[in-house]
Amino acid sequence: MSAAEDKYILHPEGEIKIETKDLDMYYGNFQALTDVSVAMPSRHITALIGPSGCGKSSFLRCLNRMNEVIPEARVDGQVLLDGNDIYQADTDVVQLRKRVGMVFQRPNPFPMSIYDNVAYGPRLHTATRGSELDEIVERSLRGAALWGEVKDKLHQSAMDLSGGQQQRLCIARVLAVEPEVLLMDEPCSALDPTATFRIEELMTELRESYTIIIVTHNMYQASRVSQYTGFFLLGEIIEYGHTEQIFENPADRRTDDYVRGRFG
């Protein structure tokens, strides 16, 4: 790694929640990520931008080991969560995924009731039942700004909700297992502008208590909601810094081209 590359990667001040060091990732022989070293601060929103196929989703999946679902995927380097490498042999993946929750590109509610969707995680990990579980469900749905809309139909199928509601339900489902980090992979790409606005509002609220890392195609979204932004290109992180700086005064010409919409 040359010094010239290094200087556009900011190391944020304050508490770091997740940090990657020299992260490489492969699908079989194809290298999807090269030498990604980046530190994401606690209780802030970090946006990851870049053209399609540059490895943003792959990077996100490295952070909660969801890449291991793909048989030919392989990782090299370190991912530190609160300073501990999650790729160590003795890491409990179940615990890791409880701490690092994930919201997907398309809403993927389970074909069961709204209540059962939210209660899914707590039922897996704890023996909570009855009123205690009811409380968790209510708290999570409130946290995802969905409670008011569904409180009278908790036992109806989640499949009957609108796309935007489904996505907030998926967020509630993640909140119910009380994670510390939220990974969001283009969570609004299947939603209309109103639903998108609701999710953005929600992210700003959630930022108080969670560390959020969001992949987005939407430059305005990145600049609206995030405090830090990383620009990916062809599997490398080109530039990482304060969101304002990345959008108004990018250091690398390629970042400049991208945020001004000159390619990609």
Partner: peptide, 26 residues
């Protein structure tokens, strides 16, 4: 759909829990 399985695994479910609680009911 594989997205349902991923959703379950990402919540910390094991493969077996995912099969029994999500895949078969779906």
């Amino acid at each position: 759909p594989v997205t349902l399985r991923s959703g379950s695994l990402a919540l910390g479910a094991t493969d077996w829990q995912t099969i029994v609680r999500v895949v078969v009911p779906a």
